[in-house]
Amino acid sequence: MRWALSLALLVLVILPNFLGSYLLTVFIFIFFYAYLGQAWNLLGGYGGQISLGHAAFVGVGAYTSTYLSMTYKLSPWIGMFIGGAAAALLGGVIGYLGFRFGLRGFYFILLTVAFAEICRLIVSHLEPLGGALGLFITFTGNPWQFQFSDNRSYYYIALGMMLASVAIVGAVERSRMGAYLVAIREDEDASEALGVNAFATKLAAIVLSAFLTGMGGTFYANYLFSLQPNTAFGIPLSVEIILRPIVGGSGTLVGPILGSFILSPLAEVSRAYFARGGLSGVHLIIYGSLLIAVVLFFPRGAYPYLRGLLRRLPRRGAP
């Protein structure tokens, strides 16, 4: 298992040398959405607290570091952490309200959507942040300003972020907090009876999840060179974030990565294929259909299903 992971890592490290610019972009998005999915997974997959407003954390992180960079020439490498902290603060507010008042299930989902929409509307009307038009980053190619003329740099940054998110969420998974989060997801009252402070655990999870997601915002801004409230805070981005862990297997470390490797290429292929036929937008229908199929046939995602298959294989071969 260990050597297989090392091999996969080695392949990913040398891969950019063999990729054209289009495929490079595809991989960058695979890594980046796996990163965001992993951050969401901490709260939604392990803790069972479904947020459909995670775009708000991307937006807050992205706008914070970009504004600081454009106004005060602060390097986005530093702004990244400030953006993460700002997103964490927002996460703390959402978590405090939601968990203090015991919102569960649909009600918590609605709260997260509402907060994302509020953020979108506020930023749309703030002139210093570019209003509805948004912010545009001028390209200088200065690495200190998170800008690179070679796309391979973005590739390695996105890969690094994805691996870092696996390391962080993996550490949480093995800790007391991870065990408590899963227990809360399974049965919150029963967990409380066993000494689990559900409120504090969920609050810590949303703050950490928002922090990581907010840091991702800096990458988002500096890779796309522009920020619009409708995209950076929009529900479509929130949906993109949660699709990958759900398809891959939420509440597992592998899930968001596997989901991203399944969905991103599929989105690209269907987008390219249908756009050529003048049917742009059809890829979203394909997307939706796939999600329905996953929910119906693999309600716990692709990874738990594959793991089950792998476990059964040797048994079938035995006499």
Partner: peptide, 11 residues
């Protein structure tokens, strides 16, 4: 284990 974690922080 969830119950036991009430008395120890180590998983």
């Amino acid at each position: 284990k969830v119950g036991a974690l009430a008395r120890t922080a180590s998983a």
